[in-house]
Amino acid sequence: MSAVARANRLTPYMFLAPAAVVLVFALLYPIGYMVYASFLDWSPSQRIGQADFIGLRNYANLLTDAAFLESFWVTIKFAAVVVTLEMVIGVGLALLLDRNIRGMSLLRTIFILPMMIAPIVVGLMWRYMYHPTVGIFNRTIKNLGFETGIPWLSDSTWSFIAVVIADVWQWTPFIFILALAAMQSLPRSALEAAEIDGATEWQKVIMIKIPLMMPVLIVTLLLRLIDAFKVLEVIMVLTNGGPGLSTEIVALRIFRTAQEFQELGEAAAMSNLLLLMLMALTIGMFMYTKIQEARTARMLKAAQQEDE
């Protein structure tokens, strides 16, 4: 075999090698390392070899740690509230705005702005707006004649609401854009058939549009749910988890455990738990798409057989 042919055969490996090297060294190895570190009693000044192996004690500590359980609960609550609100508003808006209007692309461009801007800056903007004296919300409330403003970031209920509002502002457009894209790829024939049968707008939405969009909506929901567990910067800038632990989601707690309390082993254990939870969600999402694909394939086949 000539040297040229051999070089050609090696080409694919040459092309793949850099990506493989980077991914192994900077992604797979760290994640594996984290799994190992979660069994160690480890502070940042120590090399990992010097840290003591303590088995499952980090996990045991976590499960009895009231603060961690609280932040776990806050995370679930935050993700559930935020995703529900965003789905309802986003899909609702997509249904309303699914029309032939001029400037739709400009509108979509404007809607994606909040997602493109750094989460740190989003947090900053909202923190300014929630500010007790200079913030626009409390100024407006006072101008309307009320004596006291709302304690946006200093009351535990209100700060949770404040964090939710900021997240809804930032991420509803994501759902809106996906839902709109799904809606515009719906088969016209089904809708036309419904129109001929005299279906009202509502009936069309409930009986045709929503069911047909379901696969996309569920994937969107799962994507958003995964992202909701990862939110950190906005909340950190807004409340830093406070007051008390009312807005301290797990990602933020990991950050603080590592940074402020210097408990790397415990932070790794938390990271592992968070990762397991997200993995369950992702696998669920993957399974769902696979099942959907199989179902569509079956239905297509059945339809073809009928034709024959």
């Binding site: 190895y29 760290p30 990862k230 950190l232 969600l281 992702t282």
Partner: peptide, 10 residues
């Protein structure tokens, strides 16, 4: 799925 927070420690 992997949050940056999870990569922090390793």
């Amino acid at each position: 799925m992997v949050p940056p927070a999870v990569l922090l420690v390793p």
